[in-house]
Amino acid sequence: MLGGPLRSAAGGAAQVDVEAVNIRELLTGLGDAHPKLKPIIDKGVAVSIDGQIYRDAWFQPISPDSEVHVLMPLAGG
């Protein structure tokens, strides 16, 4: 699932299918499938797997039945 502006960069798709066993593969796969997403991903995105948010964690495993969201980066105060 793509959050917010990532969606329009992926040509309006709210949901895209990518084969990936971890976050790194997910992001590479997304960038390859939707080149417009690549600069956004390179700038930094957050990924949530089953509700848990990860900021930079390439090797976080993703299991086949996980619910995955790619979100805009988060920053705090």
């Binding site: 959050g3 917010g4 949530s48 619910e67």
Partner: peptide, 13 residues
């Protein structure tokens, strides 16, 4: 609550 879909995407724990 636990399991609700958040307005920003993911489901809450």
């Amino acid at each position: 609550e636990n399991g609700s879909q958040s307005s920003y995407g993911p489901k809450f724990g």
